[in-house]
Amino acid sequence: MSIRTISFAVLVTLCIGLFTACKDDDEDLTLSLRFEHKFGAEDAVYGNTYMVNGTAVQFDLGIFYCSVFTPKSSSGDAFTSFTDEFLLVRAEESAAYEVGTFSGGDVRKLGFSIGVDSEINHGDPANWQSPHPLASQSPSMYWGWDNGYIFFKFEGRVDRDNDGVPDAIMLYHIGKDQFFTSTEIDIQENPVDGVLTAVVTVDYAKLFENIDILEDRVSHTGDNLQLAADLVENWPRMFN
């Protein structure tokens, strides 16, 4: 075998190795998110009652916007960022949400934001056609008197008189630009047939950390700004 032939064989082997490696790293992946809604270890179901720090809380509504999805490697390098995709996550829905397709590799982290950026926030829902998440919703996710999206809604009742019956209204409607919040979670799942379905656990019990739920029961954001800020501080803890 001539040196020329050996060199050619080595080159071909290298190329095959190189192309194979590229294929692994740059495989088109579809990012999909499936949200699991919890109250601690229990599934979060509308109408059910859960114990939060010894107090009974009835869960009636959980809806929030997510946006700016950024799949990342274990070292935190972003493969891409989906800045034009928006999800309106409803606690009563268990379907997976498809975010988009990207040329990626081993996704081990996912960055995303709760809410929408300021440009979108002050747009007009009527410019989006139903069923787009930014279109008008029922229940409404947009303030008509102070135009902007409601990023996060939690509604329920709390047992204020300790008789075991949640009867006092809890209502947290949080929005406004300053509460557009980023977070990051670890991804355990691996792609199957080109689809990476990341399971995002949302634990509503964590929304109430350091919150006096017997007293601080209502915030439409502006009418109880401190409570809104305290709730927003807990948002990243809710997701994993």
């Binding site: 007009d124 009527a126 008008s136 008509g144």
Partner: peptide, 17 residues
């Protein structure tokens, strides 16, 4: 208080209040 940014989006105010 000036929270309505346009007559188009303002519609939501009275409609949903």
């Amino acid at each position: 208080e000036g929270g309505g940014i346009s007559l188009e989006t303002q519609v939501l105010g009275p409609l949903e209040a």
